[in-house]
């Protein structure tokens, strides 16, 4: 129906097919995500360390809040801004990684299409792919900018 194997499997009730499609996603996903995972983890650590040294954390502990609400609600909430920025920028390496990952796993996506057109010097496809990827990249980072206002109510876009 949708030509997306997992969705089709679920919609038609063919659960073994959906499960199989899901299993074929494991290795490409791990390959593609590992690089960004490391960078996001590092950024979150640095940002959390910074946030947990702030005075309001001491205030929160002083008024008797337990460990988890302080760390999640006061620490992570305030540490999230730079992390979200990095996630937005990482979309760039995910798009690049898609070209490599789709090539290695013979996954018939835009990335693989671009790789093939690079081999055959099919310039319109290469340029179109670059434009598409850049558009996605810019749009995601626009969303990140909008997200700032939600994460930090002090930020307002007039």
């Amino acid at each position: 129906m949708t030509r997306i194997d997992i969705l089709d499997g679920l919609l038609t009730g063919n659960f073994p097919a959906a499960l199989d499609a899901l299993r074929h996603l494991i290795l490409p996903s791990v390959t593609l995500s590992s690089y960004s995972t490391a960078i996001i983890a590092r950024m979150t650590r640095a940002s959390m360390l910074d946030a947990l040294h702030q005075d309001y954390i001491r205030t929160a502990r002083a008024k008797g809040l337990a460990g988890r609400p302080v760390i999640i609600g006061h620490g992570l909430r305030n540490a999230l801004l730079p992390v979200v920025t990095v996630i937005g920028l990482q979309v760039g390496s995910l798009l690049t990684g898609a070209i490599l990952t789709e090539t290695i796993f013979s996954w018939p996506g835009v990335g693989r299409f671009m790789y093939d057109s690079i081999l055959f010097r099919d310039y319109p496809v290469i340029l179109g792919g670059i434009l598409l990827f850049s558009l996605v990249f810019v749009l995601v980072n626009l969303c990140v900018d909008v997200l700032y206002a939600f994460l930090d109510p002090r930020i307002r876009y007039a």
């Binding site: 979309v91 760039g92 390496s93 690049t96 690079i118 310039y123 290469i126 340029l127 670059i130 990827f133």
Partner: peptide, 15 residues
């Protein structure tokens, strides 16, 4: 900077 860096590099080398 609006282009993902490797994507832009691919474009330059392809050209």
């Amino acid at each position: 900077l609006a282009f993902p860096s490797v994507i832009l590099a691919i474009g330059i080398v392809a050209m």
